[in-house]
């Protein structure tokens, strides 16, 4: 059984972000990057399947060469090998492009199961894994909090507002993990040393045979700003109708959040 885990390199949420001079990007110098925390749950799920079912665990990511660091972290948690789709030569990618690259890399891997975090904590788009499943034409379930394997069927709980679905999906299938499904393990020092010897295969994005326009961004970033940190409290006076009207006006015109 082969399990492929999709992971993403993201800035540590504890980092202090700065917007670059162009006003459209984040200053990356000095920024600490980590594996997106929801992805850690996916890696943990895969390693548990390795322990219980002897699964082979392959970690797959698309990103710049530095992404190898987080692939190595997954290997230190216990994954067997890694693949990096090197996107250094590509321009900015959106979910569409990333999903196509990952799906192309997955095509000949023969994965029985693909798992990923429910969303990446940098852009919070929650799109890539589902797009990958659609591109591969396999069933998928997102935001799972329980996973049980029985033969070639997976039974999962999927979290929804105020409740949950219990679903059964035939493999191969793709799942995205929510917090609570497990507790990701910490790399141990012996496993850090073992991880050093495990293979990370680098695949230049160009080798995947995808047309450049199929990867290009369909949206452009116009501006990027940090949330305002000042704590402001303001009491809106008047009767309910006046207050609602004023609230909407403030949110729309002053705070510009609507």
């Amino acid at each position: 059984m082969k399990v492929v885990v999709l992971i993403k390199r993201v800035p540590d949420t504890a980092s202090e972000l700065q917007v670059a001079a162009d006003g459209k990007s984040v200053v990356t110098g000095g920024l600490k990057f980590v594996m997106s925390p929801y992805d850690e749950h996916a890696v943990e799920l895969a390693i548990q399947l390795k322990e219980s079912h002897g699964a082979e665990v392959v970690v797959l990511s698309a990103g710049p060469p530095e992404t190898k660091e987080i692939i190595r972290s997954a290997l230190a948690m216990g994954a067997d090998s890694g693949i990096l789709v090197d996107t250094a030569q590509l321009g900015a990618l959106t979910c569409r492009g990333t999903a196509r690259l990952l799906a192309a890399a997955l095509a000949d891997l023969g994965a029985d199961l693909v798992v990923a975090g429910k969303q990446a904590v940098d852009d919070d788009a929650a799109q890539v894994p589902e797009r990958v499943a659609e591109l591969l034409g396999i069933p998928h379930a997102s935001v799972i909090t329980r996973f049980e394997l029985s033969g070639t069927t997976a039974s999962v709980d999927r979290e929804i507002e105020g409740g949950q679905y219990t679903l059964e999906l035939p493999l191969p299938a793709l799942f995205t993990t929510q917090k609570g499904i497990n507790t990701p393990r910490y790399p141990t020092l012996p496993n850090i040393m073992k991880a050093k010897k495990k293979e990370i295969r680098e695949v230049p994005a160009a080798q995947l045979g995808l047309a450049a326009d199929s990867l290009s961004a369909q949206a452009t970033t116009e501006a990027m700003t940090l949330p305002r940190q000042q704590r402001l409290c303001r009491v809106i006076e008047g009767d309910n109708a006046q207050r609602v009207k004023e609230l909407v006006r403030v949110l729309h015109m002053e705070e510009k959040v609507l």
Binding site: E69, R72, S73, A76, Y186, P187, L189, I192, M193, A195, K196
Partner: peptide
């Protein structure tokens, strides 16, 4: 000789993670 910047950094980062989360 088995060490590299990568093993040193991973150990340092894991130690911080343990300090912070455990």
């Amino acid at each position: 000789e088995d060490h590299s910047r990568e093993t040193l950094d991973m150990a340092a980062d894991t130690a911080y993670q343990l300090a912070h989360e455990v």
